[in-house]
Amino acid sequence: MKLTMVLVLYKLKPEESKTFQTLKQILGSKNNTPKNIELILYDNSPSKQDFTPLSHEGIHTTYYHDPRNLGIAAAYNYAWAAAKQNNSQWLLLLDHDTELTYDYFNSILNLSEVPEKVVAVVPKINSENIMISPVYSNSLRPLKQERPSPGVQEQPVMAINSGALIAVNFLNEINGFNEDFPLDYLDHWLFFKIYEKGRKVFLINVSLEHELSVLDYTRVSLQRYQSILESEVNFYKNFKKDLLPKYRIQLAKRFLKQLLTVRDKEVALKTFKKLFSL
């Protein structure tokens, strides 16, 4: 199997990335001799960094710097184009803060045939001993529901980007990643498209640890929160339309909570404006 991997960085040296650290350990193990791997480090940082490519046999490493910081969708599309060019069958998406394991990497490398219609292979993702991915996508509060079991997922699920293995042929079919979701909700859109096209997701029985980003209004800028809102509304208004009525209610509850608990009332105001634009 020929594989392209993309690791997206922002204001972080490759050596400071938990994903890169664990990947380097795995590739350096004598028990792992991967072949036909293209590793792309896509750096959205303002300044280019000095980086010495990995020298492991069977792995070709590329460092690409894009100071425009267009988000992960642009990075993934760059990697998708590279995967097509080097005839990779699969594209592996990686964030900077996922702790990779030998079991996970061996499962990916030894993937030979997948069940019919499967175009995405994902691991279990845990954060603070809670399984956060994949989850069933028929609810706005999926963490309150039962979690999927390993195997082919007949019922629609959503998984986070990092650790997801996506078939290049499927990306060709949907014309790559939707850059209307430059950062937030790109994973929701991708897995929505998988089931919309009649394809499936396969969950391997391997778990990874991931640092879950929790929305903290004391640390998230107004601009960042605005970006999250835009992506949310875009997704529920134009794609997952069956959940739009429930999303309106959730947004109203969020507005009231922000009004009562968040010191910066501009946050609540942005929620209020977006609520009445639906």
Rank of each mutant, 00 (worst) to 15 (best):
V8L: 13
Y10G: 04
L12F: 09
K13I: 03
K18Q: 12
T19W: 06
Q21K: 10
T22M: 06
L27S: 02
K35W: 00
N36M: 03
N36A: 13
N36G: 14
S47G: 08
K48W: 09
F51M: 01
E57Q: 12
T61H: 06
Y63H: 09
Y63P: 00
Y64M: 09
Y64L: 08
H65I: 06
Y76H: 14
A81E: 15
A83R: 04
Q85V: 05
N86C: 12
N86A: 01
Q89V: 04
L91N: 10
L91D: 05
L94V: 01
H96G: 13
T98P: 06
E99G: 02
L100P: 02
L100D: 09
T101Y: 11
T101H: 06
Y102W: 07
P115T: 08
E116P: 00
V121A: 01
K124G: 02
S127N: 13
I130R: 14
M131A: 14
I132N: 12
P134R: 00
P134S: 02
P134N: 00
S137M: 11
S139C: 11
Q145C: 08
E146F: 07
S149A: 14
P150F: 11
G151K: 00
M158I: 14
I160V: 15
G163S: 02
F170N: 00
N172P: 00
E173M: 00
N178S: 09
D184H: 05
Y185K: 12
H188R: 11
W189K: 05
F192P: 03
K197R: 13
G198F: 02
G198S: 04
K200E: 04
L203W: 09
L203R: 00
I204M: 14
E211L: 15
T218D: 15
R219E: 15
Y225C: 05
S227L: 14
S231P: 07
L243R: 03
I249S: 08
L251I: 14
R254P: 03
R254A: 15
L256P: 07
L256E: 13
Q258R: 05
Q258V: 01
L260F: 09
R263P: 01
D264N: 15
K265T: 07
K265M: 09
E266A: 11
V267T: 05
F272H: 04
L275H: 01
L275E: 03
F276T: 03
S277I: 07
L278H: 00
